[in-house]
């Protein structure tokens, strides 16, 4: 008698493996389209030149510069703050209701759609903080109360802060409790335990958080849509109070509002390629650092 179960088993195997293959194929397909179509238009000049008026010629240097500036300012704001918050929550604070509320609030914030941060950035940073600064300094016309790189960096900082706190917290949790207790037994104060035992071991976790938030920050467009990014500013100076161009936003605007999409497509694919290379490099660095860290800690 033939065992019908073998047939079912084979069917299950084929269906599941085919789905896994499909996912892998989609990833490779997307990467290869972008690489093949983007490579034609890619050149040294494309990366280092400024765009021309119709955006179809010239390069993407201002967008790269804007993206890098944004991401750098964001990390300067968010990484130290995220680290301090994570250390406070994990090492100093008692695990009571207050801690639970903060932790669940941070988890909720990490899941809040990024567009909401854009709303927040516009209402709070641009209008309230910027307006107050203008009023305090006494400017007649708007200086701080404008959409600009500074507020975009603050908005991005708010967006990546929860992710950052969570990844540092995870790194801190990997430090064995016995080591903290041993430190305490030797007469260390709480701060000395943090300074000499916990922090050195958590540095790579902090680095991972940094790198992951950089790759997220370079890829997100929604939160900065109305906080400072602009369609066409070829001579971006790099001043924090100027509007700026950004790779992702450039792709979005060119793809949706360009008068002739067929002509714009090669430029778009090349820009996408550059953006993917940027984000994937940071992501890969983050994964490698995390992997090395895990191995070091588990030994």
């Amino acid at each position: 008698m033939r065992d019908y179960r073998k047939g079912y088993e084979l069917a299950f195997k084929i269906i599941t493996n085919a789905t896994a293959l499909l996912v892998v194929a989609i990833v490779f397909f997307i990467l290869s389209i972008v690489t093949i179509k983007g490579f034609d238009h890619l050149s040294w000049e494309f990366i280092t030149a400024e765009p021309t008026g119709d955006m179809l010629h010239g390069g993407i240097w201002p967008m790269i510069k804007g993206t890098v500036m944004l991401v750098m300012m964001m990390s300067i704001l968010t990484v130290p703050l995220g680290t301090v918050i994570a250390i406070y929550l994990n090492e100093v604070s008692r695990k009571n209701w207050f801690y639970n509320i903060i932790m669940s609030a941070i988890r909720t914030l990490a899941a809040v759609p990024s567009i909401v941060y854009g709303l927040f950035g516009f209402a709070f940073f641009v209008n309230i903080v910027g307006g107050t600064l203008d009023w305090m300094i006494g400017y007649e016309d708007r200086v701080f109360q404008e959409r600009c790189l500074l507020w975009a960096a603050f908005t991005m900082g708010a967006l990546t802060l929860p992710t950052n706190v969570i990844s540092v917290t995870e790194a801190l949790k990997l430090v064995p409790n016995e080591q903290r207790h041993a430190g305490m037994c030797l007469g260390y104060t709480r701060w000395e335990v943090i300074k000499w035992i916990v922090f050195p071991q958590a540095i790579s976790g902090i680095l991972t958080g940094l790198v992951l938030s950089i790759s997220r920050g370079a890829g997100e467009v929604a939160p900065i849509l109305f906080v400072g990014v602009a369609y066409f500013i070829p001579h971006f100076s790099g001043a924090p109070l100027d509007q700026f161009m950004e790779l992702g936003y450039h792709i979005f605007v060119m793809a949706t509002q360009s008068p002739n999409v067929d002509k714009a497509a090669p430029v778009l694919y090349a820009t996408t390629f550059v953006l993917l290379v940027l984000t994937f490099t940071f992501n890969a660095i983050g994964q490698i650092v995390r992997w090395i860290h895990r191995r070091k800690m588990s030994r």
Partner: peptide, 22 residues
Amino acid sequence: VKVITELLAGMPTVVLGFLGLI
């Protein structure tokens, strides 16, 4: 397969949107 699947998570959404559109 796990690592490749997670590559999708690192892909900026604007890239997926762009590919979908074009």
